[in-house]
Design a protein around this nucleic acid. Sequence first.
DNA 1: ATGTCACGCGCAGCGTGA
Length: 294
Amino acid sequence: MKYDIPSDTACGRRPTSSSFAATAPAASLGAMRLTTWNINSIRARAERAVAFLERSETDVLALQETKCKDAQFPFEVFEAAGYEVAHFGLSQWNGVAIISRVGLEDVETGFPDQPHFGEEPALEARALAATCGGVRVWSLYVPNGRALDNPHYPYKLDWLSTLRENAQGWVTADPAAKVALVGDWNVAPQDTDVWDLEVFKDSTHVSQPERDAFAAFETAGFTEVTRVHVPEDRKYTYWDYQQLRFPKNQGMRIDFAYTSPALTPLVTAVEIDRNERKGKGASDHVPVILDIAV
DNA sequence: ATGTCACGCGCAGCGTGA
């Protein structure tokens, strides 16, 4: 389980102690639980995340919006619970992590040709990959877009398009590859994925170009498995903190999991953990939990 | 209730992002 971090990489994974070598090999797992969750600050919610891991029996947790640099990430909390951690964070914005108790190998920060953003265009910490239990897991925090006339919007479309080109290449090169693209996609693919379409008609998340960019992953052979297993309307994954959106169930469904052809038939169940939005100190997104036969 | 939360900065409360 030794993993040497090249000195020039921005990835914040800590080398783990030899005790992690006792982790069960993927071949003996039988089943794996993979969860994606936009946690909206890991420092504000580390204890909540560990409690979730233990309650849900999650094996691999892909986090988005950790909102910290690598040096600020609370690695110890997760390592004490028996997990390995890879984190990619460059500032107080964005930040993605993968937390696993079934192996964490070949960590990759960002995808090839990932678009940059800003006055001085720079890479943002929005994509992180690791192989866990035989599955290539990508934790993704798709750019928000902000507004249809904002530079962040074409950046979002470019970002999705470039990711899709990569994903298509991965499964073309290896049709047996088990790839999971999970995270906060910041797209509501269907009209019913927002609580009131009228409220969003001039906003990002529901525009046709965004929906087309999202749907292109299907064309590339991927399947959005949360919809397959949870097809009902009003099963949201995000509720704004403002205006009593959660108690009124005025939310958005924007957290998804695209799986490659080899992985799709192995997904046996999906659950949106609505209860995690309750109480003081909740993230504005909830975990989306996948059961995978591996 | 024009009704939130978390960040940096820096020690109050504003600017930023979502």
